[in-house]
Design a protein around this nucleic acid. Structure first.
Length: 379
DNA sequence: CGAGTTTGACCGGCGC
DNA sequence: GCGCCGGTCAAACTCG
C-alpha cells in the first residue's frame, strides 16, 4: 500500500479508525444508529439532486394508499420492488440541520441530536423524530420546471449516472480493445440502448447515524470500490458495492464534516437476495423480506417519518439533547477530531444501545450476533 | 490464494 | 471550451 501517497486527510482518517478500534473496545458490528431515514433523490451532484428533489416534490398528488404504510430500514435494505418512479408520493423531505450535508453530501435530512433543529416550528429533541419535524423543506420549487411531473421516467432517463458511466466504461474497454484495428460498430447502438437503460432509476435511501464506525454493519457484505475526498470536508466518502453476484446495490458512507460524530450512509438500489446474516440464521427477523413494495413509509406525508421502531434504536433523548449541539459529554474523545470538538460516543452509545426497546434489541441481536458480547472483539 | 482494500486515473455531467 | 466534481475503474496491494 502506498501510505506515503496518502493525503493528510486520509492519514487523519486512518488514525481515527486506529484510535477508535484500539482505544474504545468498540465493536464495529454494533448497529449503532440513531437516525432519521430518508429517501433521497438519485443523483450525485447538488444540482441534479435538486432536480430529483423537485421531481419528487412535483409528484405529490398522491392518492396511493400504500404510501400510508411504513417502511423500515431493514425493509429497504432487503429491498423489494419499491417503485420510486411512480410519482405517488407526497414527499416530505426531512430538512437537515447541516447545510454542508444538504448541499454537498447529497443527503436530505437526518438531524439527530440537538436542540437547534427547529424546522417548520418543530424541534427535534429526540431520536424519535417527531413527525412535526417533517416539514416540506421546499416551499419554493427547486427548479422552475417542477411542474413536469413526468419526473420518474423522464428525469430518470437523464440521470442514472453511475450505471451509465459504468456501461460507458465497459464501452471504453471495448474501444480500447479495438485499438488494434478491430472495430465494434455496435458500440453506438449500444449507447442508444444504454440511454434507455438509464430509465432504471435505483432508489436511494439515506440515513444519518451517530456512530464512530463509518461502515455500519447491516447484515450484508460489501466490497469497497472507491474512496473520494469530499469537497468542503476533511472526511472522505467511501463507495461500497454488495458483494453478492448480480446484486447491484451500492452504498456510500461518509462522515459529516459539520458533525463528525454523524455518519451518513446512502443506499442505492435494492438487494435481490437475502442477507448473508439471514442465511446464517441471524437477523432473520430484521432482514426478513417484509418488503415494502410501494409501501414506502417515507413517501407518504402522513407517515413520514417512518415509525421509529422500524428504523433505529432508541436512545434516551436526554443523552441526545443537551446543551449546544453536543450529544453528550465528550471530553475524552476530542483527540479524534481536535478541530471539531467531537462528540464522543463510543462508550455512551454503546451503553445506550443496551437500553433500546425490547423489540429493537431483538432485532439487533438477530442482526448482529456479537451485540451481546461485543467487547474486546477487535484484533 | 482468494477476497477485500487502496488509490491514481479516468469519465461524464455540469456550471461558468 | 474549460475546469471542477462525483462516481467508477482497475492495478497494486494487504490480509486472513
Amino acid at each position: 500500500m502506498s501510505d506515503d501517497k496518502s493525503t493528510a486527510r486520509d492519514l487523519y482518517y486512518q488514525e481515527y479508525h486506529h484510535q477508535l478500534y484500539n482505544n474504545n473496545n468498540y465493536d464495529r458490528s454494533t448497529f449503532n444508529h440513531q437516525t432519521s431515514i430518508n429517501n433521497i433523490p438519485r443523483s450525485s451532484s447538488t444540482s441534479s439532486f435538486h432536480n430529483d428533489l423537485n421531481g419528487l416534490l412535483s409528484s405529490s398528488s398522491s392518492s396511493d394508499p400504500l404510501t400510508q404504510q411504513q417502511l423500515s430500514f431493514t425493509d429497504y435494505l432487503h429491498g423489494t420492488s419499491v417503485d420510486y418512479n411512480t410519482g405517488d408520493r407526497d414527499f416530505n423531505l426531512l430538512p437537515c440541520s447541516s447545510p454542508e450535508i444538504f448541499s454537498s453530501l447529497d443527503v436530505v435530512g437526518g438531524v439527530l441530536d440537538n436542540n437547534k433543529n427547529h424546522i417548520g416550528g418543530s424541534k427535534i429533541s429526540n431520536l424519535v423524530v417527531d413527525s412535526a419535524w417533517c416539514t416540506n423543506i421546499v416551499n419554493n420549487p427547486v427548479t422552475p420546471n417542477s411542474s413536469s411531473v413526468s419526473s420518474s421516467s423522464t428525469e430518470a432517463a437523464g440521470d442514472d449516472d453511475s450505471c451509465n458511466k459504468r456501461k460507458n466504461n465497459d464501452e471504453n474497454q471495448l474501444s480500447k480493445g479495438s485499438e488494434d484495428g478491430t472495430d465494434f460498430p455496435k458500440n453506438k447502438l449500444n449507447k442508444q440502448n444504454k440511454k434507455v437503460d438509464k430509465k432504471q432509476r435505483e432508489p436511494r435511501f439515506a440515513f444519518m447515524t451517530k456512530s464512530e464506525v463509518d461502515h455500519l454493519e447491516d447484515g450484508y457484505r460489501w466490497r469497497k470500490y472507491g474512496q473520494k475526498a469530499v469537497k468542503n470536508s476533511i472526511y472522505p466518502r467511501s463507495y461500497y458495492r454488495c458483494t453478492t453476484q448480480k446484486c447491484t446495490v451500492k452504498k456510500r458512507v461518509e462522515r459529516s464534516f459539520q458533525d463528525p460524530a454523524v455518519v451518513i450512509t446512502t443506499y442505492e438500489g435494492q438487494h435481490n437476495h437475502q442477507s448473508p446474516a439471514t442465511l446464517r440464521g441471524n437477523a432473520a427477523r430484521l432482514l426478513a423480506p417484509s418488503m415494502l413494495t410501494s409501501s414506502s413509509p417515507f413517501l407518504g406525508s402522513s407517515s413520514f417519518p417512518p415509525r421509529h421502531q422500524d428504523l433505529m434504536l432508541r436512545i434516551p433523548s436526554s443523552s441526545l439533547t443537551n446543551d449546544n449541539n453536543q450529544v453528550h459529554d465528550h471530553k475524552s474523545s476530542n483527540y479524534m477530531y481536535p478541530q471539531h470538538n467531537l462528540t464522543p460516543t463510543a462508550t455512551v452509545l454503546h451503553q445506550q444501545q443496551l437500553r433500546v426497546l425490547p423489540a429493537d434489541y431483538g432485532l439487533l441481536q438477530d442482526m448482529v450476533p456479537s451485540f451481546n458480547h461485543n467487547e474486546q472483539k477487535h484484533p
